[in-house]
Simulated scan of single mutants.
Amino acid sequence: MLTISQVSERTGLTPYTLRYYEKIGVLKSPSRKEGGARSYSESEVSYIQCLTNLKKIGLSLEEITEFTRDGCVMEKIELGEDPTKYTQTLDKRTEILSKYLMDLEAKQQELDHMITLTKEKLAGYFELSKERNEIPMK
């Protein structure tokens, strides 16, 4: 079992953020030690890392809450649960991720264009510098 500080170190989220996510329902309350200190399992840390990845791709906390409402559905299905039980959840997750994939692809195209422009500018500057260095000094 891990303390909130250890989970913070492993996930990159501050203890404040972990407590906030718990308060708004993004995270379920972890078990508590005597004295009330939070105690996290490895599976809870994996789940928090999943949340962090969803946040990194741009999902809002509201979307993350919706996305994770039924827990780790893929794991449940792998453990033998009926996939049709999760049709609505899978459809919603597919919709959310498809939207963000389109956004990421658009950003990637924009970055590719910016990289091309930057390379062209650099090539021009290198060429000008080369020409300037080749001019004989009088």
Results as ranks from 00 to 15, higher is better:
Leu90Val: 07
Asp112Tyr: 11
Lys99Asn: 11
Pro83Gln: 02
Gln88Gly: 10
Asp112Thr: 12
Leu111Gly: 01
Asp103Gln: 12
Lys85Tyr: 15
Lys85Asp: 04
Glu110Arg: 02
Glu95Cys: 03
His113Gly: 04
Gly80Met: 04
Arg93Gly: 02
Glu75Ile: 08
Asp91Thr: 12
Gln108Trp: 01
Thr89Leu: 11
Gln108Ile: 14
Thr87Trp: 01
Met102Cys: 02
Thr84Leu: 12
Gly80Gln: 07
Leu104Thr: 12
Lys92Tyr: 05
Ser98Asp: 09
Ala106Tyr: 00
Leu101Pro: 00
Asp91Ile: 06
Thr84Asn: 11
Glu110Val: 05
Asp103Arg: 14
Thr84Ala: 08
Thr94Arg: 09
Gln109Thr: 10
Leu90Ile: 15
Thr89Trp: 13
Tyr100Val: 00
Leu90Trp: 07
Thr89Asn: 08
Ile77Thr: 06
Leu101Ile: 08
Asp82Val: 09
Lys92Pro: 00
Thr87Met: 12
Glu75Leu: 13
Pro83Cys: 04
Ser98Asn: 04
Met102Phe: 08
Glu75Ala: 13
Tyr100Ile: 06
Leu111His: 02
Glu81Ala: 07
Asp91Leu: 11
Ala106Ile: 05
Glu95Lys: 00
Arg93Val: 12
Ile96Pro: 00
Gly80Pro: 12
Lys99Pro: 05
Lys92Trp: 02
Tyr86His: 09
Met74Val: 15
Lys76Ala: 13
Arg93Phe: 03
Glu105Gln: 04
Leu101Lys: 12
Thr84Val: 13
Glu75Asn: 11
Ile77Met: 11
Lys107Asn: 13
Arg93Cys: 02
Ser98Val: 02
Met74Lys: 14
Gly80Leu: 03
Gln108Pro: 03
Ala106Arg: 06
Arg93Thr: 00
Gln109Arg: 14
Glu75Tyr: 10
Met114Ile: 11
Leu104Asn: 06
Glu110Asp: 15
Asp82Phe: 08
Leu111Ser: 08
Gly80Arg: 03
Leu79Cys: 10
Gln108Asp: 02
Lys99Glu: 11
Leu101Arg: 13
Asp82Arg: 07
Glu110Thr: 07
Asp112Cys: 04
Glu75Asp: 15
Ala106Thr: 04
His113Ile: 04
Met102Val: 08
Met74Pro: 07
Leu97Cys: 06
Ile96Val: 14
Ile77Tyr: 06
Gln109Asn: 14
Gln109Lys: 14
Ile96Cys: 02
Gly80Tyr: 06
Lys85Leu: 15
Leu97Asp: 03
Tyr86Ile: 05
Leu90Gly: 00
His113Arg: 10
Glu75Lys: 14
Leu79Trp: 07
Thr87Cys: 12
Leu90Asp: 03
Thr84Gly: 07
Ile96Ala: 04
Leu97Asn: 03
Leu101Asp: 15
Glu78Val: 15
Met74Phe: 07
Asp112Val: 07
Leu104Ile: 10
Glu95Val: 01
Pro83Lys: 01
Leu101Gln: 09
Tyr100Ala: 01
Glu81Arg: 00
Arg93His: 01
Asp91Glu: 11
Lys76Val: 02
Ala106Met: 07
Glu78Gln: 13
Leu104Ala: 14
Glu95Gly: 00
Lys92Asn: 09
Gln109Leu: 10
Glu105Lys: 00
Thr87Ala: 14
Thr94Trp: 05
His113Met: 11
Glu95Asn: 06
Leu101Asn: 04
Gly80Glu: 05
Gln109Tyr: 09
Lys76Asn: 04
Leu104Gly: 03
Glu110His: 05
Ile96Leu: 14
Leu90Glu: 03
